[in-house]
């Protein structure tokens, strides 16, 4: 073999190796980036801003079916319906009103229809202190028995006000009690929760999820595997907490936390 052909053979071999290496890096033979697994888009019902219930006022506004509120289609004016009770003094709700499931208060303490409905004019409600109010103004009825909650609601602390916090720029809508509470069974209904957070990589069934509950971000942090910067910053923070510690006005009193 002449030195010239030897050189070109080596040259050829080396270029092949180089091309192969370059291809290898390009196609990423090792260290494939973490494959993302499909995450389904969240169902749009979880994005819905509608309240739990539609009130009488909502039905009127939307021009929907109001036949449930047309009391005198079935009842006779001037002839109040008679309440019937079973042997245990529990109210019997007639089957025509099967949508009315009474359960107001933990002990059904407010199950009497005429605590709220006006006996002599079924199309009106009657507050505890004897004022007649229209169905559309039902918060006044609720407020006659739930004073403190009603005051919170008026101030916007209970219930929900939607729209504009800046009333100069737009309108705000205060949701009515019956938007969230069924007047007959006012306990706030439970519901299916929206999906929880997905980890960056799927976790094998049964395996504990990465990221301690206390640090929901840690699954992201551990991905990089370099926590030293975190330690560095936390050291810095230690100084910060000391320098900036201040006496606090707000209180955290665990003993005061009432259980649900």
């Amino acid at each position: 073999m002449s030195p010239g052909s030897k050189t070109s053979a080596v040259l050829f071999g080396l270029s092949t190796i180089f091309v192969a290496l370059a291809a290898g890096f390009l196609l990423d033979f090792r260290g494939q980036p973490a494959l993302l697994y499909p995450i389904p888009l969240v169902a749009t019902n979880f994005l819905d801003t509608a309240t739990v219930r539609r009130s009488y006022a909502d039905l009127v506004r939307a021009g929907d079916d109001l036949s449930d509120f047309d009391c005198y289609a079935c009842h006779e004016r001037g002839k109040p319906p008679r309440l019937r009770f079973d042997a245990d003094q529990h109210l019997i709700v007639p089957k025509e009103h099967s949508d009315v499931v009474m359960g107001h208060g933990r002990h059904g303490r407010n199950n009497n229809c005429f605590n709220c409905h006006d006996e002599n004019n079924l199309e009106l409600l009657e507050t505890r202190d004897g004022h007649q109010v229209k169905f559309a103004d039902s918060p006044a009825l609720c407020g006659s028995c739930h004073g403190p909650t009603y005051r919170d609601w008026e101030a916007g602390a209970h219930g929900r006000i939607s729209g504009y916090w800046d009333r100069d720029l737009g309108e705000a809508q205060r949701k009515a009690c019956v938007n969230c509470h069924n007047p007959h069974s006012p306990r706030f209904p439970s519901r299916q929760p929206a999906p929880g957070p997905h980890l960056l990589r799927p976790v094998a069934a049964g395996a504990a999820s990465s990221g301690t509950p206390s640090n929901p971000g840690s699954e992201w942090v551990s991905l990089v595997g370099r926590d030293s910067w975190r330690a560095a910053v936390e050291t810095k923070l230690g100084v910060l907490a000391r320098e900036d510690a201040r006496p606090t006005g707000a209180v955290v009193k665990l003993a005061q936390y009432p259980s649900r």
């Binding site: 929900r160 504009y164 916090w165 800046d166 720029l169 519901r191």
Partner: peptide, 14 residues
């Protein structure tokens, strides 16, 4: 722009 944040608007419990 004067509006409430999205998380508030969607909260069913207020």
């Amino acid at each position: 722009a004067g509006r409430y944040p999205a998380c508030l608007e969607v909260c069913p419990a207020g």
